[in-house]
């Protein structure tokens, strides 16, 4: 039995893995970034791409080597070597992936906590969704109401309180990298600190009916002053019906919890409707 050319295999994996990661790191996969969460998430993507490239390269190198080295010559009817396994090797290829995924898990956890940390000066914006339109309420500015267009100040955290009037919708601004479902009956939240001014699109990403693919809204990130001016200029208030529905839902939740004693451990009972805390 010939010894494996370990060094060559490792070098080939290293070389092709490096080449692959370099190629895969060139494009800006997630697109433009416009929130404080985005660079962290994009970095995480890059780290994952590099690790994945080496793993994928390792699999391909091993497969290619085996196919070149041990492909039978025509007419050879004999069998391969009766190797049943190798405990040491099996332990290695259980432990290494284990360490990698645990590392990625802890890394993800840290980043998650970071991007969801709430700032003290955060403002709240209500996001109402219904088939197939978005509307926005500004509770801290006299419950002003905007249809189809969302403005937020730059460099200040906004906590979006997400509501749904009929079916599930999902709130996503790709440049912010943040997404959360609007769920009828409860209030969910999405936390974003936009850090670039500009125009973006709010995209519904949860199937909500025939108009799903057209359920968009314009998002404008602007300076604090421009934002204040824009909100002031809004001449509508959030209609009773929207608030009523949200309140009704809240009332129902409260009643249900009074009846059942809340959902243990879910963190739901303290806040009534807020599943996120």
């Amino acid at each position: 039995m010939t010894r494996l050319p370990y060094l060559k295999l490792v070098l080939a994996t290293f070389a092709s893995g490096t080449l692959l990661s370099v190629l895969l790191l060139i494009p800006n996969w997630f697109g433009d970034a416009a929130s404080t969460a985005a660079p962290e998430i994009d970095l995480m993507l890059d780290v994952t791409i590099v690790i994945s490239s080496y793993i994928f390269a390792g699999v391909c190198v091993a497969l290619a080597y085996a196919l070149i080295k041990w492909r039978v010559k025509p007419g050879d009817e004999s069998d391969g070597l009766p190797i049943h396994g190798n405990t040491k090797l099996e332990i290695v290829w259980t432990m290494i992936p284990l360490l990698i995924v645990l590392g990625l898990g802890i890394y993800s956890w840290v980043v998650l906590d970071d991007i969801e940390a709430k700032d003290k000066d955060a403002q709240i914006v209500n996001v109402y969704s219904q088939q197939f339109a978005w509307t926005f309420g500004f509770p801290e500015q006299g419950n002003k109401w905007s249809e189809g267009e969302l403005h937020v100040p730059v460099d200040r955290q906004t906590v979006f309180k997400l509501h749904a009037q009929d079916v599930i919708h999902s709130f996503w601004v790709p440049e912010w990298r943040i997404k959360k479902d609007n769920v009828p009956g409860i209030t969910t939240d999405a936390i974003v600190t936009p850090d670039k001014v500009g125009h973006f699109q709010l995209v519904c990403t949860e199937l909500c009916g025939y108009g799903h693919s057209t359920m968009r809204a314009n998002v404008v990130v602007e300076s604090e002053a421009d934002y204040a001016k824009w909100v002031k200029g809004l001449d509508q208030k959030v209609p009773e019906s929207l608030i009523l529905t949200a309140d009704q839902a809240l009332e129902i939740e409260r009643e249900a919890q009074a009846r059942d004693g809340g959902i243990e451990g879910s963190g739901v009972q303290e806040t009534g409707t807020d599943n996120q805390s």
């Binding site: 196919l67 041990w70 039978v72 391969g80 070597l81 190798n86």
Partner: peptide, 10 residues
């Protein structure tokens, strides 16, 4: 992959 190593691959 380990199965392929030292085999006679058809």
């Amino acid at each position: 992959l380990g199965t392929l190593f030292y085999g006679k691959i058809h």
